[in-house]
């Protein structure tokens, strides 16, 4: 009995030690490449920015309807002379099968200036259309107030039409943008 327990413990312990070693080597690479992907997205969204300062003291979850959407990070883009030239808000709405990671850029006037999808993992050919359909992605640009999700051609400025057949994923995208807009409004009230 004791021998069995010791053998199992020895196996588990050695596996854990080996993993600790490999974690030691891979975790800096993982952290670095994640940082690179983030920097790249931020720079594409606001190319004029000189630095992106993370705003840390902020509520990390926003409610939209019954869903709770996480906001992992908020960055204030600074141009030359420390001037505020926009915000980048990282939001994670729930898509069809997985969370969509996206960054929404908002200009100082409070309207959406661009969106970058970092990761989306929905059904190929359907939910993934959100990623390939640039017309849809760009339809949120210029929004300055919470968008209403509609299924037919938009009648007003703040109505955004979902992609036919990919309602869940494209609604998630629009909700993500709405959360970002709300975050910026909250930030402005604080100032």
């Amino acid at each position: 009995m004791l021998r069995m327990a010791l053998t199992l413990f020895a196996i588990t312990a050695s596996v854990a030690i080996l993993l600790a070693i490999s974690n030691y080597f891979t975790s800096p690479i993982i952290a670095r490449s994640a940082k690179e992907r983030l920097d790249q997205s931020l720079n594409t969204l606001i190319p004029d920015a000189i630095s992106f300062d993370e705003i840390t003291d902020f509520e990390k979850e926003i409610n939209i309807g019954s869903a709770k959407i996480k906001v992992p990070a908020i960055y204030a883009a600074k141009g030359s002379g420390d001037q505020q030239i926009g915000y980048c808000i990282w939001v994670t709405p729930m898509g069809y099968s997985d969370v969509i990671d996206m960054i929404v850029a908002i200009d100082p006037k409070g309207s959406v200036s661009g969106v970058q999808i970092i990761s989306i993992n929905d059904t190929p050919g359907i939910g993934m259309k959100v990623q390939s359909d640039e017309g849809f992605q760009n339809s949120v640009i210029g929004l300055n107030d919470s968008a209403k999700i509609v299924k037919s051609a938009p009648a007003a400025k703040n109505e955004i039409q979902v992609i036919a057949g990919a309602t869940v994923s494209s609604s998630a995208y629009i909700n993500g943008v709405n959360v970002a807009l709300e975050v910026v409004q909250m930030l402005k009230q604080e100032v």
């Binding site: 080996l18 993993l19 490999s22 891979t26 975790s27 690479i29 993982i30 490449s33």
Partner: peptide, 12 residues
């Protein structure tokens, strides 16, 4: 253990 290793290598 090996699965976790693959997981780390793929992520990196």
């Amino acid at each position: 253990g090996f699965v976790t290793l693959v997981d780390m290598l793929l992520e990196a």
